[in-house]
Design a binder for these strands. Sequence first.
DNA 1: GTAGGGTTAG
Length: 292
Amino acid sequence: MLCATRYAIPKLHRFLLPSSNLLAFMPYTNRTRLCLLHSQPLPSRDAYKFDNVEDVVALFNCMVDMHPQPLIVELTKILGTVVKMKYYATAIYLYTQMESKGILPFSVTLNVLINCYGHAGQMGFALSVMSKFVKWGFKPSVVTFTTIMKGLCLNGKILDALDIYDKIVAKGFWFDEVIYGTLINGLCKSGKTRVALQRLWKMEDGLLDDALDLYFNMLDRGISPDVVTYTSLIYGFCHVGQWKEARLLLNEIVVKDIGLDVYTFNIIIDALCKEKMLLQAHILCDVMILRG
DNA sequence: GTAGGGTTAG
């Protein structure tokens, strides 16, 4: 079941305690170590190759059984760790365990849970967690709505995501680049790049002319599209073969000195390869290598 | 100092 080992502990701690948050964990580390060591037989040599997720699960299980109960903030951090490893179903399971032991979530925990359900293709549950917010006396935040929006996009319900966007506006939350990024990506993914631009433009109360005008307009409003937003749009244009627009956007990134990252490069190289433009793809590959 | 946005291939 679990392959917690004597050798796994230091590694586990390094993994879970990357920052100055060390102090918050200190009361639990020794107990955790004892728990892990006593619940499992000593490992064979092969046990060095353990799965990190299982270690995280082991830690979570230990903590959930502790008295006094650990802080929900700490449990939420561990859940977040599992999510970052993309083990969504596992995180959902852990949450269920936690709740069944009478440990109450707080707003961030619920946001994490919603994210998990979205990725697991269970938007029905994600939405019912929304109602739990009220039940537990918390208010859904802009993060909650953005997470729901992302989940809807992931599950092919782009129109519902746009409705959520309207709710964000109605709630009076101010826009930020993450909301834009989520929505733009969702729209571009569903092959509706034009709609994405129109929608963006509408957000900014302007007229749709072309992508360049749009970005200058956004800048004027104090919201600068970042590399994620650009990358999503480039993905959309590449996918419909509109190289001119893609190139224009790429040019903007360079002009604005926004760092291209591995996502951007991969998207463009992938598109070039699919268009059999291998020479250009190769050049970009070299650029990537040059930039380390 | 806890939560939300971007890719491909196999």
